[in-house]
């Protein structure tokens, strides 16, 4: 689980990078890369080369736009949004669902987070854990537990372990994630937007 102190340190490095301090970019990369790589490990159809390319593209975009990031504390969420969009664009181009000159646009660095950072983190995590507990026993719950709670195996490795297709694992993870997204949106509507 994320430490609030670690989050504050990350924000400090974001501020230093935004001031153009070169070592801060290295530090941001060192600290955040494992999370970006973990996100991409959920996209089973991407091979190792493609994952590396998406990581590179994500950081190039993020570092270029970093000085315009309005909420330094939202760096991680912003970075993960970019990584997700880059991965989805890559996958859709791979399946020819999207033209080469089309791409999913990244959130603007001026965007502000919908959920208050840190303040509700513990509560949000408790909600997510509860939603996982409430999933009916079966393959989806097993997949979610292996990927998000244990956090060791990639979607490809989970597919191998469970003896299912890799796309099936990604679909299960995406379905659960959509459930969490719906819940967080509802919580935003119940609070901040009213």
């Amino acid at each position: 689980m994320r430490r609030v102190g670690a989050s504050r340190e990350l924000t400090e490095w974001v501020l230093r990078a935004a001031r153009g301090e070169e070592p801060a970019f290295s530090e941001l990369y060192r600290r955040s890369r494992p999370l970006v790589a973990r996100l991409l490990a959920g996209f089973a159809p991407l091979d190792a080369d493609e994952v590396e390319d998406v990581i590179q593209e994500t950081y190039v975009r993020a570092f270029k736009a970093l000085p315009r990031l309005k909420e330094p504390a939202a760096f991680e969420a912003w970075l993960l949004s970019i990584a997700r969009n880059r991965a989805r664009t890559r996958l859709e181009r791979k399946s020819q669902a999207r033209r080469l000159d089309e791409e999913i646009s990244d959130p603007q660095p001026e965007s502000t987070p919908l959920l208050p950072e840190a303040l509700q983190l513990e509560r949000d995590m408790a909600v997510v854990r509860q939603l996982i507990d409430e999933l009916p026993e079966g393959e989806e719950k097993k997949t979610v537990h292996l990927f998000y709670v244990e956090g060791q195996l990639s979607a490809r490795e989970i597919a191998e372990k469970l003896g299912v297709g890799k796309s099936a694992v990604t679909m299960r993870l995406e379905r659960f994630r959509a459930r969490i997204k719906q819940e967080l949106l509802r919580r935003v509507l119940a609070g901040r937007w009213e």
Binding site: L39, A77, W78, L79, L80, S81, I82, R84, P113, L184
Partner: peptide, 11 residues
Amino acid sequence: LLDGQVDELLL
């Protein structure tokens, strides 16, 4: 940034 916040929470 909702997508990023969802992923941040889960990861």
